[in-house]
Design a protein around this nucleic acid. Structure first.
Length: 416
RNA sequence: GUGGCGGUAGCUCAGCUGGUAGAGCCCCGGGUUGUGGUCCCGGUGGUCGCGGGUUCGAGUCCCGUCCGCCACCCCA
């Protein structure tokens, strides 16, 4: 035997046995997106490295240590997409969608790539639904998008989760907040630990990350730090109020988390995360927010936008965690089992004729005994099993009476 | 990337202080059975993650490496 080749670290296969669950999730996403007016878009798996380097932010973990970047044979720097928003915005600009009716509601379901340490619910290649509404700053759109995902969780049977919500301000108010925060961090430097100091130097907004893991004195100190919520400009306060009002109106529960900052730098105003029931730390099933400057940064006109990335694998884990039953996989219509001595040539013709009329059917290709063939019919969930003898065939249906027919009548009897 | 735990049949796992590999499920066959379910009998299937070392002898001990999981970190 040759040396065995295994799948690369951090990747996974979706085998047929899992496909019913997988399809259940993606079908529901597609159904909801259609219901909310989102249209599907497909973008390349790799992009110009600059697309992510410029938009995600140089200080972000994604850019700093998680990008799959490579040069092709012409020395172009390319990167396997780590997230879905920037590519969709790039396509929005590139195809002049800003000239189409606004907002453009777009979504994709596609694999994303991040070179991080793998674990449960954490993959180097993972699938995400990326749902984006570009071209409107209406706060109702923020709420609608959040409500869409909330509805998805409900439809999929996930109930152990909560929604964390925050506003991180805009161009007008965030800089002054940052200034105040920086000043506070400098004044209180002695009360911080090394980790927090490091964050304070690179991305001050993130000093609140992982709050619960910090030493008690540091936590105590940070509770005194100014939060963005107290520093929003009037427009941002009003926007956030309107978002919450819509969420209240649609019955979406949320927790205000004034320290919630997202991992990508392009966000502004509304940010949110849905946190699921998983035991380990990878329990964020969806994260998203508003990105009112992203399109502009990509060379388009000033254009607001909002979206989220929903991890498919984590959704599946959350469903498993909540004990959601597997949807029954559909069986085939007809299975042909041959008595010893029956001619296969006739059955081959019947299969083709029935399939042509839309009847799904199959027979044994493993040399099984009749009993084995009947077992196989059961495994395939056949609605009808046809036991083929020399000149006749007997149609069996679970719970029904057997019908024995001459060969000539088989196809017409089984056709719809 | 750092630290901790783990890796035995397709799956879930057993294998005591080193003596040369087992169970259940699955799969295949036979029998039973008023039909494809149940039950009974039998069978196929293992580079013990990989490589090296210690030893008369390694699944078992040591080193390296790969993979998984957990924590840190961050997120989907």
């Amino acid at each position: 035997m040759s040396e065995r080749i295994e799948r690369p670290r951090g990747t996974h296969d979706v085998v047929p046995a899992e496909m019913a669950r997988w399809r259940h999730v993606t079908d529901e996403i597609e159904r909801l997106c259609a219901l909310y007016g989102y249209r599907r878009i497909l973008t390349p798996a790799f992009e110009d490295t600059a697309l992510f380097a410029r938009t995600s932010g140089g200080g972000s973990d994604v850019v700093q240590k998680e990008m799959y970047t490579f040069t092709d044979r012409s020395d172009r720097s390319l990167t396997l997409r780590p997230e879905g928003t920037a590519p969709i915005c790039r396509a929005y600009v590139e195809h002049g969608m800003h000239r189409d009716p606004q907002p453009q509601k777009l979504y994709t379901i596609a694999p994303m790539y991040r070179y991080g340490a793998p674990g449960r619910g954490r993959y180097r290649e993972h699938w995400q639904a990326s749902v984006e509404a570009i071209g409107s700053g209406d706060p109702s759109l923020d709420a609608e998008l959040i409500q869409l995902y909330d509805t998805l969780l409900g439809r999929l049977g996930v109930c152990s989760y909560h929604l964390e919500l925050n506003s991180i301000g805009c161009r007008d108010c965030r800089p002054s907040y940052l200034e105040r925060l920086r000043a506070w961090l400098a004044d209180n430097d002695a009360r911080l630990d090394a980790h927090t100091r490091e964050k304070a130097a690179t991305s001050p907004l993130r000093v609140f990350d992982n709050f619960l893991a910090k030493p008690e004195p540091v936590r105590e100190a940070l509770t005194e730090a100014p939060t963005i919520g107290g520093s929003l400009c009037d427009a941002c306060v009003e926007h956030f109020r309107a978002v919450r009002a819509d969420l209240d109106a649609t019955g979406v529960a949320y927790r205000l988390v004034p320290t919630l900052v997202r991992g990508l730098d392009y966000y502004s105003r509304t940010t949110f995360e849905f946190v699921g029931p998983m035991e380990n730390e990878n329990s964020t099933i969806t994260g998203g927010g508003r990105y009112d400057y992203l399109v502009e940064e990509l060379g388009g006109p000033p254009t607001p936008g909002i979206g989220f990335g929903a991890g498919i694998e984590r959704l599946l884990l959350a469903m498993a965690e909540d004990g959601v039953e597997e949807p029954p996989s559909p069986g085939i219509d007809v299975f042909f089992a041959l008595e010893p001595g029956a001619l296969r040539s006739a059955v081959v013709g019947w299969l083709a004729a029935l399939r042509a009329t839309g009847v799904s059917c199959d027979m044994d290709y493993a040399g099984r005994s009749l009993k084995g063939q009947l077992t196989q019919a059961g495994r395939l969930g056949a609605a009808a099993t046809v036991v083929v003898a020399g000149d006749t065939a007997t149609i069996r249906r679970p719970g029904g009476d057997d019908t024995t027919l001459p060969h000539e009548a088989v196809v017409s009897t089984l056709s719809p």
